[in-house]
Computed example of a mutant assay.
Amino acid sequence: MEFIGTARPKRENWVVTMTSDEQAIMGQHFEYINKLFSEGKITFSGACTDGAMGLIVYNAESAEEAKVLFENDPLTKSGITNTELHPFRVGHVNK
């Protein structure tokens, strides 16, 4: 089962105006998603180059597992962005 997690900044120009605390949280976030990716728990992740949003497609056995993966992300825990998690179905992939 796949789920999509999104993170949207709470202020404009967030990518270029991050505080040192926010940069530290983003570092923890990247470590966390790299770990999940290596475990096969993430199908795809990325961010808009204009900073509008980031997304992660989780590969989970259940909605409960996806929720745990999502809620344990340092970015989600921090509350520095608006985050959401939804069931998702991958449509087309061009490799």
Rank of each mutant, 00 (worst) to 15 (best):
R8V: 01
M53D: 04
K35Y: 09
V93D: 04
F70V: 02
M53W: 12
K35A: 15
L69C: 03
N72W: 08
F44E: 02
P9D: 02
G46A: 07
H86W: 06
V93P: 00
E84W: 03
L55Y: 15
R89D: 02
D50I: 06
N72K: 15
N72P: 06
E65M: 10
D50R: 12
D73W: 05
F3L: 09
K77L: 11
V93L: 04
T17Y: 05
M53P: 00
E71N: 14
C48M: 14
E39T: 02
R8T: 11
V57N: 06
M18Y: 02
V68Q: 09
L36Y: 10
G51A: 02
S62I: 02
A60K: 03
D50N: 14
G51M: 09
V16F: 06
E22F: 07
G40T: 05
E22Q: 12
R11E: 03
H29W: 05
T43H: 14
N82E: 14
Q23V: 11
T17G: 02
R11G: 01
F88E: 01
E71K: 15
M18A: 10
G27L: 08
Y58A: 03
G51Y: 07
T19E: 03
F37L: 10
G46H: 09
K67Y: 06
R89Q: 13
N59S: 13
V68C: 04
V16A: 13
F44P: 00
M18L: 09
V57D: 05
T6C: 05
A52F: 06
N94Q: 12
Q28M: 10
M26H: 13
Q28C: 10
K67G: 02
E22M: 08
I33N: 04
P9C: 05
F88H: 13
G40D: 04
T43A: 15
T49S: 13
T43K: 15
D21Q: 12
N13A: 09
G91K: 10
Q23Y: 06
I33E: 02
V16T: 15
N82I: 01
T6V: 10
